[in-house]
Amino acid sequence: MNWINNVVRPKIRSFLKQRDDSAENLWVKCPESGEMVFYRDLEANQWVVPNSGYHMKIKSADRLASFFDDGSYETVALPEVPVDPLKFRDQKRYVDRLRDSRTKTGMDDAVMVTKGRLYGRPVTVGVQDFDFMGGSLGMAAGSAVITGLETAERDKTPFVLFVASGGARMQEGILSLMQMPRTTVAVLRLREAGLPFIVVFTNPTTGGVTASYAMLGDVHLAEPGALICFAGPRVIEQTIREKLPKGFQRSEYLYEHGMVDMVVHRHNLRATIGSLTGILTKAEPAPELASQPPVARISMRAAAVAAEGDDDLVTAPPEAAHAE
């Protein structure tokens, strides 16, 4: 009877498991409203739930394909760094975690650097992927951000960075924390070169990333509802033993308190960044931008920066922030 247990039953289990997986992939539940959305409809809408407007996490490749002209871009080669320098192990070895994340995401580490064209203008773009160990900042991620900044400086292009992170990577200890000053120095060099650095906060952006390069942009944009903080609200509530305000540390709250310059719907990010890079580099206006929707929100700080380019930045009232 061994052949029944060893062959037939595993095949039956495998068949049932495949059916369960496919059923889950067909529909996606909105975390905010509970709405069930067909997978392909959500993918076609850039992973924004149509009715609630909730911005779900989006893969790096999908974001880049919808951002660059014709979805065409070139991946920048990143420097190699030591793997598992501390020989770290908790419930599983660090090298095993890295291997699993690389298989899951198809990325070498949490940050990917690319270059291409945005409305005909050259631009360097970095994307931090939360699916790779929570977008944690380690030696490889820090070196990738520095490479992106140096590439923008060398090619004399703006640098746009989409950030998403749970903080520093504990498996690398002090070597992870050292990436904070390293990336800060690289940001200062780009600023000395007179090139714009635009940061786009996505959900979530926390910890050492927020405490370093994520808060050093010339203009800070944020997707709606993104958590942006150093320590999370749960940790703060447990420390001070008080209830925090509703929406605390979310994009809209930080915009109202001057920490974020603009809150922009994902569908409008491409046009908004295209306008800002053109203004900050004093480039000729792109004809394609004339037909794009206006910028959803802009703060006085961003307006002052834009005014230096002697160009007009079309604005819309705050209530239009979530309009598609």
Results as ranks from 00 to 15, higher is better:
151 T>V: 05
283 A>E: 14
144 A>Y: 02
63 R>Y: 10
311 D>Y: 15
36 M>T: 06
52 S>A: 12
14 S>F: 10
253 Y>F: 15
59 K>L: 13
323 A>L: 12
128 Q>M: 15
292 Q>E: 14
87 K>Y: 06
113 V>M: 08
267 H>W: 08
200 V>H: 01
262 M>D: 04
154 R>V: 07
176 S>T: 02
18 Q>W: 09
247 G>P: 08
241 R>F: 11
147 T>Q: 12
79 P>I: 11
320 A>K: 07
106 G>Q: 06
11 K>D: 10
37 V>L: 07
316 A>W: 10
297 R>C: 09
231 A>V: 07
165 S>K: 10
215 M>E: 07
56 M>V: 11
294 P>S: 08
291 S>D: 14
82 P>G: 01
46 Q>F: 05
172 E>Y: 02
139 M>Q: 14
234 R>S: 12
94 Y>H: 11
213 Y>H: 12
212 S>E: 07
95 V>W: 00
34 G>D: 08
161 L>F: 15
56 M>W: 14
112 M>V: 13
18 Q>E: 14
159 F>K: 03
292 Q>A: 15
309 G>H: 05
131 D>F: 07
118 L>C: 04
113 V>T: 03
59 K>N: 13
324 E>S: 09
225 G>D: 06
214 A>C: 09
88 F>Q: 07
229 C>M: 10
175 L>Y: 14
12 I>Q: 09
99 R>L: 08
195 L>N: 03
68 F>A: 04
23 A>Q: 15
206 T>G: 05
94 Y>E: 09
49 V>F: 15
235 V>P: 00
128 Q>R: 14
247 G>V: 14
28 V>E: 02
208 G>A: 13
165 S>M: 11
129 D>T: 13
219 V>A: 06
29 K>Y: 08
211 A>C: 04
159 F>A: 02
70 D>T: 08
58 I>V: 12
131 D>M: 05
281 T>C: 15
260 V>R: 04
272 T>E: 02
117 R>N: 15
27 W>K: 11
258 G>I: 01
179 Q>S: 00
93 R>P: 02
132 F>V: 06
302 A>W: 00
22 S>D: 15
214 A>K: 03
137 L>T: 00
19 R>S: 09
173 G>N: 14
272 T>G: 04
19 R>I: 13
240 I>M: 10
64 L>R: 02
70 D>F: 11
279 I>L: 11
201 F>K: 02
90 D>Q: 13
241 R>W: 11
270 R>S: 01
72 S>N: 09
209 V>Q: 05
163 V>K: 08
118 L>P: 03
139 M>H: 07
218 D>H: 13
316 A>C: 10
13 R>C: 13
50 P>Y: 01
